[in-house]
Design a protein around this nucleic acid. Structure first.
Lengths: 177, 177
DNA sequence: TCGCTCATGTAACGTGTTACATGATTAA
DNA sequence: TTAATCATGTAACACGTTACATGAGCGA
């Protein structure tokens, strides 16, 4: 599953421009899939070439032209087949946990900063998810929001509970060096 | 931060072969960073060329030769500088949540399977983490284990609580199509 | 006037994935 | 006899990231 599939998915919710799709990645998809313009626009181009999406060029006053993309029937089929064939995986790449793993190699002040920054980041994400939760949406989408809330809250609680002890212990134990 | 940095980190725990390092990725690092032989061996080669690791070739009876790598002083410095310069990010790529987001496009049976498979996978990871938790290790490492346990348990609970309602609701609501 | 929103895209680069290739030993 | 463990590596490919390039309108 790649950015192309997610673009098909985005368009299954309604017609959209590349710009609109990017916003979807930054909002509704943000806690489980990332993509930037550099992968979205080429993906839409490939999908167009494959006949899985089509677009309508719309001229605008005082704005650059828009390409409003729509899913074609072939695109909808492709999306459904992709989804059916995708095993439910989850891959985390956490630079935060790498830093924690090697916490004893960081200067104490930096370790404290790292914990605070990560906590702030998570709280920001929590706010975004809480806002999303208020909206009305299909049960599948609602589920992704609740899942994000549950795991992020668990992360925040875990850090808040361990932080002080961690800062004290890391530099007093002699495992390192 | 890339596989090279993680290899330096692995070697900061003690000398090791590429094969040993792969095991570390599959065990202690597995819930926050992935790497296969195809990225580990080339990383060790580059680090050798840069003078950040060195190796001792050990002949073995009935086994292929081993290259036992060690961190050089330059490598240890590089590791520390890398860690200090790394912002605490976390990136999730969850094909599972993509499937949930578009749950209404999956056949009911497949949706049930997907939920079960993902739950099984998480329970397997929980067991691995629970085993790791029993061992004695530095506080930073202990923290990564507890963090993994906390977030994975939250995920499992969230799925168990929502699963039945989700399976019922997804196909009865009319948001889709 | 500063920064944000709208709007599209390219090109170079870095990185990682996958499959392949080899092969003996050992425990079930 | 099957699968797992030990042990190393390569090559092609896919994919995504980053930085760059452009530019008007609008609200604070």
């Amino acid at each position: 599953m790649d950015v192309k599939t997610l673009c098909l998915g985005a368009l299954s919710l309604g017609d959209a421009t590349g710009y609109d799709i990017k916003k979807l990645f930054d909002e509704a998809f943000s806690h489980f899939f990332a993509a930037g313009y550099g992968s979205i626009y080429p993906a839409l181009e490939k999908l167009t070439a494959e006949g899985k999406v089509s677009y309508d060029r719309q001229q605008q006053e005082k704005r650059p032209d828009k390409k409003v993309f729509s899913l074609t029937p072939a695109g909808r089929e492709e999306l459904i087949h992709d989804l059916e064939a995708t095993p439910p995986r989850e891959k985390v790449r956490s630079e935060f946990l790498v830093l924690m793993f090697f916490a004893h190699l960081l200067p104490p002040q930096r370790l404290a900063e790292v914990l605070q920054e990560f906590l702030d980041e998570n709280n920001k994400n929590l706010k975004m998810l809480e806002d999303l939760e208020k909206g009305d949406c299909p049960p599948g989408i609602k589920f992704t929001i609740r899942y994000g809330l549950a795991t992020t809250r668990a992360a925040v609680e875990c850090i808040e509970q361990s932080r002080d002890a961690l800062l004290r212990e890391v530099y007093s134990t002699q495992f390192a060096q």
